[in-house]
Design a binder for these strands. Structure first.
Length: 1066
RNA sequence: GGACAAUUAGCUCAGUUGGUUAGAGCACAGCAUUCACAUUGCUGGGGUCACUGGUUCGAAUCCAGUAUUGUCCACCA
């Protein structure tokens, strides 16, 4: 290899993309291929991690980069070790997070809300956005060097994960753990959705606390910051022992505050009330407070009155003065009323904590609603014993079960479980897994996780001129107008993806043409004309305007009205029902479009819903060319109808994320190969900020569904902050973009900066400076390779030690391999990286390479460097692989799959001289002890030793016995130190003696890893320096050229060294 | 209000089960430069390990308390 061809600096950009593609093409990220290529085999242990799926909300940030760096390091280590190693990539649809992001963009760019676009179109926008985010994320992930098995990539919203979600939902529903209940939920007005307790972000704000009475003679005053909610008060709670109020407990007082009905306030006793706070009485608003709702569960006799609506205005229950006002307007008005009636006793300014929505950032309202919940406290039968989900979660973590790193987080975990309420899993947002529940349109009964046979669409024709002029057409054949045709085309677009097989249409041209326009656009040629789908015959009313008809034939709007010699709703309904039923028998497996007319569809819709004939006019009119979709299922087991509609809500995103460790491995197919091989996974590595959101839910789901743990160990990394310790945020402009950084300094430098100097659970400050330092190190490694690769001969001689320095290096190398391996096994990445860096830079580069320049031992140098390179690979995959590809120190095709270095404990034994020194030290100790405690120097003693010192002592037992006057050398294991013992420290050893006269000497822990051969190393360096001709010549020159006859410091040092060496030789 | 953490050199941080003289990088000072590497090397200064007690032969490390900072949780109406 010609030195000149190799650049002096390592240029990450030159290598990274190319190397990643090569790795990827090799397929070696996939354990199946590693088995095929004999890098591992079926007898080897498995090691698996699922990547915490990044949200498809944009791009990766520094936190993701840390996650990737940590996980990839661990994964690469295990792969090199020969484990069957699997790391699965994926992304998270992240429901609310993504939806709110797209909604914000939509509002900013087009001033539209999701309701303006409609469900289908809005979802399309989100999917486009999600796809782009996904691509960016994958690109960034690859840039970091992450050795993920892309062939197994998953998405929380794809078909397979969807199946897992439905399966899990059904099982929980069947076990009674998922229920639909009327409870108070956190509601974001802006997002028009619920959110779970964990998604609530409490912020501090200024508020006014009003103390008032409901009426002049009301016996108890209460305080509130939300006076308008008091219109929904139904009780006052006081402490049971509160003497002031005891006499009122159980009584009900009424007060007219302007709400729809006068308030009936019952005085109840509840332990949760703090009698010392405020007036010692709490106004209870069960509809708009979690605490008060729970209070009502304890006191079911009190009422619940909802005064705030989902749009943030007051309901009718609040009274006609307040209905439809915003909460703020209502508050002002109510306060004014209180003031006018002289009911306010106190107004004070306080700071208050309020809950806001994590994603929409508006203050949440607490509103009672019918929602889906997971019951965490409900007992159920689990593998033969009674338990609750809470209990399952609690029992999963602890010694011998799931290990948390750092361990202290288990405390917060348990605390969180203890305070857990039922988990609200339904969301009114559109992006996410639809709740797999269908309601029979006729009898309203639920069906879970149903198979949809087909979807049927009912469309009223597009607009005609008569529609526009509000004239009855009936059987009169009025064609579509231009607007009508356009409407049909738009409808076709909406239906394009619905895979419609057949179209049935009324023969009347306005319907038929609508069908034709749609059919052409969605590629359905066959349009079956069925006269029974035609419009209601309006008899004499055809051609009359709506208002005229109303005047002349008022009974036409009735179910049986026939005064215009017309067809009644009843007759029309029967014929269309017959037609639809017939078609259903033949075509229920196909998606079907039916184009028909307003009145008959309305009649049909009434029939399907099974409401009384009299309420026909309460059925909403069908607008022109707007599809109504109905799911066709197996007939309802209660009423026999086929028509169902799915719950419009979606699931909390964490419901699907909770299944991630096994939904990615093939579950619900419990025989899936991956599932059998790789579950439970070995490690979960994620930020501590989602311990509750995600980790806890995975534990819940896995314990419940599979009766096992999702992972053995949880490694929680900290938040990545900027150099001043602030959270990275766009508004502060301090965001470190991993992509920019890795382009500038290389991915390896970024990885190292994120790993070293960081410990699990603690936040990490990332600065440019730190990254530069690591970039410098990658360059150091590169140049080491240049030296070792070009300055040494390739040799096949085994690396035999020739000098003390060689000996030291070998010993140190084995110690390093042992330490790094041990650190990696314990997930102590930072320690591993630091220690390895110190060894590489301090020992190998700055010391041994210098030695090598004098005492050439090429075989050993190459041998050592090869080991170092392999140890570095998991941390810095690119530069190490680049070196490998350039210099080929090892024969493997890729360093990535090179065998992890092993160490030999016998090589770690300390040298004889050092042992001797150790013994000498111990003897002095004994002498000191004898002197200090006036023990007869002639008296013999028992000496006890531990650990590595024991070995040392045994090796020199005879000398030791003689010199130290002992009669017995004993072995003690730690913990044995008797109470009445004095211990005296000397050097490396600590000795202790019993006060009863017999002296024991023991060494509790000797640390030999850093022992005295530092000295060896020092001498070797000096020798090397001094025998380096250049060095001597330079020094001489310096001395001669020195002006003023004064030696510079450095020269003095040189002389010192010389003298020192001379004294050593004597 | 509760819980958890942090406090080590001018700055950013390691220090994993109590043990030689408490470490690293940056910054600072001095020196070196045909050398694999200036993205370099050598040398040096700089620390009462927040404070006060306790346990121990021995404490940055364990215990108790105090102070400051931060994070999370909580129904103070």
């Amino acid at each position: 290899m010609n030195e000149n061809n190799i650049p002096k600096t390592y240029d990450a950009k030159e290598w990274e993309n190319e190397l990643y593609s090569k790795w990827e093409e090799s397929g070696l990220f996939n354990p199946d291929i590693c088995i095929k290529k004999n890098i591992t085999d079926e007898t080897k242990p498995t090691f698996s991690i699922v990547l915490p799926p990044p949200n498809v909300t944009g791009t990766l940030h520094a936190g993701h980069a840390a996650m990737l760096a940590i996980e990839d390091t661990i994964v690469r280590y295990h792969r090199m070790k020969g484990d069957r190693t699997l790391w699965i990539p994926g992304t998270d649809h992240a429901a609310v997070a993504t939806q709110s992001k797209v909604e914000n963009i939509l509002w900013k760019e087009e001033q539209k809300t999701r309701f303006d676009l409609g469900r289908e179109e809005f979802l399309k926008r989100i999917e486009t956005f999600a796809q782009q985010s996904h691509d960016t994320i994958v690109h960034q992930t690859k840039k970091m060097g992450a050795s993920l098995d892309w062939s197994r990539e998953a998405y929380t919203l794809d078909e397979k994960r969807s199946l897992s979600v439905r399966t899990a939902f059904k099982k929980m529903y069947d076990d009674g753990l998922i229920y639909r209940g009327y409870r108070v939920v956190n509601w974001t007005i802006k997002g028009q959705s619920t959110c779970s307790d964990d998604e609530v972000v409490t912020i501090e704000r200024q508020a006014k606390l009003y103390t008032f009475r409901y009426s002049k003679n009301f016996p108890i005053a209460i305080a509130t910051t939300r006076p308008e909610t008091k219109l929904g008060d139904t009780a006052i709670a006081v402490h049971p022992d509160d003497e002031r109020y005891k006499k009122y407990i159980g009584q009900t007082f009424t007060a007219d505050v302007g709400s729809a009905k006068p308030l009936a306030i019952k005085i109840i006793a509840d332990e949760s009330v703090d009698p010392a706070f405020g007036t010692g009485a709490v106004g209870v608003t069960p509809a708009h407070s979690h605490a008060d709702f729970e209070m009502r569960e304890r006191h079911p006799e009190i009422d619940l009155i909802q005064v705030i609506d989902t749009d943030g205005t007051m309901t009718a229950e609040a009274g006609q003065d307040y209905a439809h006002l915003t909460t703020l307007e209502a508050r002002e008005k109510f306060v004014l009323w209180l003031r006018e009636n002289d009911l306010i006793e106190k107004e004070e300014d306080i700071t208050q904590n309020v809950g806001t929505s994590d994603r929409y950032e508006d203050v949440l309202e607490i509103i009672p609603m019918r929602q889906w919940f997971v019951a965490v406290n409900k007992e159920f039968d689990h593998s033969g014993k009674k338990t609750t989900l809470k209990q399952l979660m609690r029992e999963a973590v602890g010694p011998g079960k799931i290990t948390l790193l750092p361990e202290r987080f288990s405390k917060t975990y348990f605390h969180w479980i203890d305070n857990l309420r039922d988990w609200c899993i339904s969301r009114q947002i559109w992006f996410g897994h639809r709740i797999p529940v269908w309601y029979c349109l006729s009898c309203k009964k639920e069906r879970i996780n149903a198979t949809v046979k087909s979807r049927w669409f009912f469309v009223r024709h597009g607009e005609t001129d008569w529609n526009k002029k509000e004239i009855n057409a009936g059987t009169t054949d009025i064609p579509l107008n231009e607007t009508g045709r356009e409407q049909a085309r738009l409808t076709a677009e909406k239906l394009a993806a619905e895979n419609i097989g057949v179209i049935f249409s009324s023969h009347l041209s306005r319907a038929h043409e609508t069908a034709k326009i749609i059919g052409k656009k969605i590629g359905v040629d066959e349009i079956i004309i069925d006269d029974r789908l035609q419009e209601r015959n309006m008899g004499k009313a055809e051609g009359l305007s709506y208002s005229e008809t109303k005047k002349r034939f008022p009974d036409l709007q009735k179910y049986n009205g026939k005064s215009a010699n017309n067809e009644s709703y009843e007759e029309a309904e029967n014929r269309i029902w017959k037609a639809v039923s017939e078609h259903l028998e033949k075509h229920s497996h196909k998606n079907v479009l039916i184009t028909s007319h307003g009145a008959v569809l309305r009649a049909l819709w009434r029939k399907i819903q099974g409401v009384t004939p009299e309420s026909i006019m309460n059925i909403k009119r069908f607008p022109n060319a707007t599809p109504l979709s109905i799911d066709i299922l197996k007939p309802c087991e209660y009423c026999g109808h086929h028509f169902f509609e799915q719950d419009p809500d979606t699931l909390d995103t964490w419901f699907s994320s909770g299944l991630w460790t096994f939904s990615t491995l093939g579950w619900p197919d419990e025989n899936a190969v991956d599932f059998k091989n790789y579950h439970p996974t070995s490690l979960l590595e994620t930020g501590y900020d989602i311990l509750f959101f995600w980790v806890a839910r995975m534990i819940l789901m896995t314990e419940y569904l599979l009766d096992t743990h999702p992972f053995d160990t949880i490694y929680l990394h900290g938040l990545v902050r900027d150099e001043q310790g602030r959270k990275m945020s766009k508004s502060l402009g301090n965001v470190i973009d991993p992509l920019t950084v890795s382009e500038k300094y290389g991915a390896d430098a970024l990885r190292m900066a994120l790993i070293s100097g960081s410990t699990p659970g603690n936040d990490l400050r990332l600065s440019d400076e730190k990254i530069v330092m690591m970039r410098n190190f990658t360059n150091k490694l590169w140049n080491l390779a240049r030296y070792v690769g070009t300055m040494t001969e390739k040799t096949n001689t085994p690396p035999e030690p020739k000098t003390d320095a060689d000996q030291y290096l070998i010993k140190k190398l084995h110690a390093i391999v042992r330490d790094i391996t041990r650190h990696l096994e314990r997930y102590e990445l930072s320690l591993a990286a630091e220690e390895l860096r110190e060894f590489t830079w301090g020992d190998f580069a700055d010391w041994y390479v210098e030695v090598h320049k004098v005492e050439k031992n090429d075989a050993l140098l190459r041998y050592a460097f090869d080991k170092i390179l392999k140890l570095w690979h998991p941390f810095m995959p690119f530069v190490t692989e680049a070196i490998h590809q350039t210099f080929h120190f090892d024969t493997n095709e890729f360093l990535m799959i090179a065998k992890w270095p092993e160490f030999d404990t016998t090589k770690l034994e300390i040298a004889t001289e050092n042992r001797f020194e150790l013994v000498k030290g111990l003897i002095s100790t004994i002498r000191n002890v004898r002197a200090a405690y006036h023990i007869d120097p002639a008296q013999k003693m028992t000496v006890s030793a531990f650990g590595e010192s024991e070995q040392t002592l045994r090796g020199n037992e005879e000398i030791f016995k003689r010199l130290a006057r002992i009669d017995k050398l004993q072995t003690l294991k730690s913990a044995v130190a008797p109470k009445n013992t004095l211990r005296v420290q000397y050097g490396l050893l600590s000795a202790f003696l019993h006060l009863d006269g017999v002296v024991d000497i023991a060494k509790e822990r000797a640390r030999f890893t850093k022992e005295k051969d530092e000295k060896e190393k020092y001498i070797a360096t000096l020798e090397a320096k001094l025998s380096n001709k250049n060095f001597i010549e330079r020094a001489k020159k310096e001395i001669i050229e020195t002006k003023h006859g004064k030696l510079k410091e450095s020269q003095k040092q040189l002389l010192d060294i010389k003298n020192h060496l001379a004294s050593l030789q004597n």
